[in-house]
């Protein structure tokens, strides 16, 4: 657990979205921490940060539809000794106000927490103006910034608490609506920068984040049942700093890795994992699943997950294919050299 001393659950993950859980956890945290202030840009209801505002109206600022200004004000409040939580849609945090996040908050290494909702294609029907399949790529490149993509409501609660204990800027991206839980509860040993092994296996590893963790676990179960394949599933909730050890172990032990994310295949989790594998020199096959280099079409989110093959079926298909590929053992590799 985090060091905030809050260990009780007052939320019901079966009926609450990760954003609703965020709003509730933040409000709990606000009870004991006078330094917490909250800001939004006319998205108090959509991002659920308004929950904090209802309880602490004096510490809540709705700045209107002006995201650049919002992140600047948050920086000013952090400079004045407060701990701002800032919420808007991912596309506005990572793209509209990218320079304020980078220069005002990350460059000054301010203790500011950005909780962005509607990330990836979770707001499927809104179209590309409201999708955000680029935020991990952008945010991952900002020095000082910790980047987290929680898998479900429990993990959102853990991440929100943990970010309070981490001095400096943190970006947490969550989805829009209800998401099924993949963790049985919140006491599974969440630790920033440390992947959670959801299943172990020696034939292939699926490294996933966000809602794709659940899809990966489902796919792994199916593969085990149908083919007897040993599929390891890593929940890589922290995109930066990445758990390099977990990636290297997977590369060495399973030699086949699939990454899955609700994000472009360029610059996000898949790229982060690819960098580690490439630099390691380990012989390992890699397949990146995510939104290809296109603007996603409009549609129901589940339909889009299926179309872009980041649901259980898509992961299963990619895994079945990769399991059929012979990967050279490391000793053979050394012989060739």
């Amino acid at each position: 657990m985090s060091g905030t001393g809050l260990t009780y659950h007052v939320y019901d993950v079966n009926h609450m979205t990760p954003a609703e859980i965020y709003g509730q956890v933040l409000t709990q945290l606000g009870e004991g921490r006078e330094d917490i202030v909250a800001l939004t840009a006319d998205l108090a209801r959509s991002t659920k940060i308004g929950k904090f505002g209802e309880r602490f109206p004096g510490r809540f600022f709705n700045v209107g539809i002006a995201e650049q200004n919002m992140f600047g004000i948050a920086a000013g409040l952090a400079l004045a000794g407060f701990t701002p939580f800032v919420s808007t849609f991912a596309v506005f945090a990572a793209l509209r106000a990218a320079e304020q996040v980078r220069t005002d908050i990350c460059y000054q290494n301010l203790n500011c927490k950005i909780i962005a909702t509607h990330s990836g294609i979770s707001f499927g029907q809104a179209g590309s103006t409201h999708h955000c399949t680029e935020d991990l790529a952008v945010m991952r490149s900002f020095a000082n910034l910790t980047v987290i993509a929680p898998a479900d409501g429990y993990e959102t609660a853990n991440a929100v608490r943990a970010c309070l204990d981490r001095q400096g800027p943190v970006y947490i991206r969550i989805g829009r609506g209800f998401e099924q839980t993949v963790h049985p509860g919140e006491d599974y040993g969440f630790e920033l920068g440390r992947a959670v092994t959801m299943r172990d296996g020696a034939d292939l590893t699926v490294i996933a984040c966000g809602p794709c963790v659940l899809h990966a676990v489902e796919a792994a179960k199916t593969l085990a049942d149908s083919q007897g394949a040993g599929v390891r599933v890593l929940n890589m909730h922290t995109i930066k700093p990445l758990d390099r050890e977990a990636v290297l172990a997977a590369a060495a032990e399973t030699r086949r890795i699939i990454t899955v994310e609700n994000h472009s295949i360029i610059g996000g989790l898949g790229s982060a994992v690819a960098e580690v594998i490439a630099e390691s020199g380990l012989p390992c096959r890699l397949v990146r699943l995510g939104i290809p280099d296109v603007f996603a079409i409009v549609g129901y989110t589940d339909d889009l997950y299926n179309l872009y093959k980041i649901d259980a079926a898509g992961i299963g298909e990619a895994a079945a294919q990769l399991l059929g590929v012979q990967v050279q053992a490391e000793d053979d590799w050394e012989d060739e050299l």
Partner: peptide, 13 residues
């Protein structure tokens, strides 16, 4: 914008 945040901070404190 940062100055606005600082002035808000003064009021809050």
């Amino acid at each position: 914008p940062m100055a606005v945040g600082m002035a808000l901070g003064a009021r809050l404190k």
